[in-house]
Amino acid sequence: MMLRTHLDAHDGSEAIKSGALQKAIGAFIEKFKPEAAYYTTDNGLRSGLYVFDMKEPSLSVVIAEPFFDLGCKVTLSPCMTAEDLRAGFEATGL
């Protein structure tokens, strides 16, 4: 699964000053142990991208709510490795 978080400059600055952003990121990383985590800007927003294994769909609430509380836009998208893609192509029978 890929989690993308986007936070505007004003809300982001407030969340950083209060420590809330660091707390939300730290809690997510500790609980879900992403295999990759990247931080960047996207369309002028502070952004985080995380690749991790989400065991069940109901966890989307647990994952997203702390970021929503900060004013983040949150996107969860299934993603796959090259091996997963290859297996998917093979499964199509084409």
Rank of each mutant, 00 (worst) to 15 (best):
M1T: 07
M2P: 00
L3D: 02
L3K: 02
R4C: 01
R4S: 05
T5F: 05
A9I: 12
A9K: 05
A9D: 14
D11R: 09
D11C: 00
E14T: 08
E14V: 10
I16D: 15
S18F: 12
S18P: 08
G19D: 14
G19C: 14
L21T: 05
Q22V: 12
K23Y: 14
A24E: 09
F28R: 11
I29M: 08
K33D: 14
K33G: 06
P34N: 08
E35A: 13
A37P: 03
Y38P: 02
T40I: 01
D42G: 08
G44D: 06
G48V: 09
G48H: 11
V51M: 07
F52C: 02
M54I: 10
M54A: 09
K55I: 08
S58L: 07
L59T: 00
L59S: 03
S60N: 06
S60L: 10
V61G: 00
V61C: 04
V62H: 04
E65R: 03
P66R: 08
F67I: 03
F67H: 01
F68W: 12
D69P: 01
D69R: 05
K73V: 10
S77I: 11
M80R: 06
M80D: 01
M80Y: 11
T81A: 05
T81K: 07
E83A: 15
R86C: 01
G88P: 01
A91I: 04
A91R: 13
G93F: 06
L94W: 07
L94E: 09
L94D: 12
L94V: 09
